[in-house]
Write a protein that binds this DNA or RNA. Structure first.
Lengths: 217, 217, 217, 217
DNA sequence: AATGAATGAGGTTTCATTCAT
DNA sequence: CATGAATGAAACCTCATTCAT
């Protein structure tokens, strides 16, 4: 959805623009994000942004798409129906945690999709995005069940959904202030270590263990 | 956080203001919500809103607090450390589903807390809100474990967290367009019945069953 | 088309706003006219203009309507089917000339309706405006013919049109630079007296005489 | 006023640029006309326009001059002091009508000269343009009067002016929406046939007849 | 000479908040 | 206390013009 102009830009300028937009959209939210500030942060003129994208909406959409594609590649990239589901789950949570640590702003863009007034973006981005994981993981679960690698009689859709929920709440959500507060409500002893990711890592490891126990035959 | 003026208002006017604000904040989001439109929808003058609340922020905060208190009362209200945890979980999911169906806008206000630019509201509202359930449910789990009513050796914090997550994703989240899209990715056959709550109810019932199986000794 | 807010304004503020808008629209044209400058000239805040009118378009439309109504009242006001057509024509040209001298900006607004990009305004204003004179004058001509007061066998529509054209080119048009240049092409000896209206008055008197000769039986 | 660059361009590119500019200036008006869109419509780069002309103003001026020269050649071209004034008038109205039908955009450019904010263009174009006809026609009238071919004692300037006015309002003006609305006010029965030129042609024929009657001795 | 990306001033419109009535 | 007009700071977007390639 960028104009050709943007596509033909030198890579580094593209990166600067997307980076600035990601950062500002993620911290201010779509409405409070100022295109002029994005331009300034990217080191280009305000008008140039509009040479690259039709509207602020378009810019937001594209920034999301690019960010979430990177996320998908890094996190779900290796998922194949014939793969080992236990390895897969472990990889997914670890890769997700790494991605979230390195690109918290991108992850925030995803979280914003659930907010009021963002429906148009959710509509444009979410269907493909969410189906990507759902379809693959359901296939993987089905194939694993058929081969007797996991507990028989499992509800494939529900299981895939629950695992993804765990992923969302443990890996994705913690980039937001609100979810960190939630976590603190359950593990108040970690209050001091807000910026310490060991708590996160530990929780993730335990969640992965829990899933393994739940899945194994 | 309203001014005294608001407190001393006739009940019905208070209700009108809070209702209008809830509806407009929930559908437009905080930034796009127009104080003038809220006033108009409430049938009061724009200036009156500022007789009742210091700022738009304050109004938002109070609307959230009132809404979420109602939510809490209705959903978690009966939770006591000595109660039956199985009944409690069942009640919580059912009451939550009913509340969400009857007050989707209030639930949306809660969801918005996770968005970019809403940190100040999360900060003000979430700690008490989240602890309310976390503390009580952890106590209930602890007491139940001590009395041998649930499977021994359970990780209390993690279990409470997971159950709350399930609640969030199955009961709370579906009020948002984005989450409905997510659900459709896992249960695409329900595509036609987007507005049909039978799917929701069924998922919730199964989730409650799942929790029971997980908890029972 | 103004909002109620404008209608309920003190007369003098209404006058100031309409006056400023007329002046600036007339001198700069719709596109180059800056709402901020209109506000400033009217001594109100920029935002206030938008309390009074939905859009710049609406403001323009209303300014035209008010101005042209005044024009109509002053120039065509006394026209009645049973009146004396010779007196009527004389009055019309004299009153028109006076109005144009006293309110050149209003007259310019009318001239602008013929320009590219102004179709939407022409569409909204012209039909009623033009029919007002056309209908009345055709009725007057018809009645006069029936009573034998004017030359028989006259083409009523064409005659009304031609008289109105004369009015337009001699009375209305001279407020524009372009038409003054046209006039100079036909009466170059008056070059010195660009701001002198004696030339205008003289032409108008002669035109009225010409019409009388043409009409009289 | 184009740069040499433009003059040395292949004919067809010149034609494309002038055609595109004419079309867009005429439909959008000077201010709303976008140089980029003109370039695109002409199939040249935006920057190239500025290789051809100093400014947008210059482009507009030149487009007008070229268009109006064509108009003049086609309509007034054959006018000579010794010619037959009756033939001349008939030719002028017919040729004008044909030109307006074939080049309405060019004619619109002329009409725009009377608008607010276009004075600088009127100043540059109109004096020569208007004098061209005025001088020649006055000479023709004078010569005809001297030779006794037309009614004696005629007011040459006023007559030339009135004939030109008729030409303007019947031949030139109908390219504008506003003037078509005016026409409809006088001949409402033609409402259905807005795009039908028979009404125009008929009116023009009658006007020519009227002029002949007026002029003939 | 041709191209089209870059620029930034400028313009319309919105809206939280104030304040006189 | 209610009202709603007034305010002006932003914010999105446009576009004439420049300039490096």
């Amino acid at each position: 959805m960028p104009k050709d102009t943007f596509i033909q830009l030198p890579q580094d300028k593209q990166v600067r623009v997307l980076g600035a937009a990601t950062q500002i959209f993620a911290s201010a939210g779509f409405d409070r994000a100022d295109v002029a500030r994005i331009a300034q942060a990217a080191g280009v003129a305000k008008g140039s942004i509009y040479n690259y994208f039709e509207t602020k909406d378009d810019l937001y959409l594209y920034v999301c798409q690019v960010g979430l594609k990177a996320f998908r590649d890094q996190v779900y990239g290796t998922m194949e129906p014939g793969g080992d589901i236990f390895l897969m789950v472990a990889h997914m949570f670890q890769a997700g945690a790494r991605f979230a640590k390195e690109n918290p702003d991108t992850v925030r863009l995803y979280l914003n999709l659930s907010s009021a007034g963002m429906d148009r973006f959710a509509e444009a981005i979410a269907p493909e995005m969410e189906s990507f994981f759902a379809d693959r993981f359901k296939a993987l679960l089905g194939e694993s069940a058929r081969r007797g690698l996991i507990r028989p009689g499992i509800d494939v859709s529900m299981t895939a959904f629950l695992i993804n929920n765990l992923f969302m709440t443990l890996v994705v959500a913690p980039v937001s202030r609100h979810h960190r507060i939630r976590l603190r409500a359950y593990w108040p002893e970690e209050e001091k270590a807000m910026d310490d990711d060991r708590g996160d890592d530990d929780r993730i490891r335990r969640a992965v263990g829990l899933i393994h126990n739940f899945l194994k035959p």
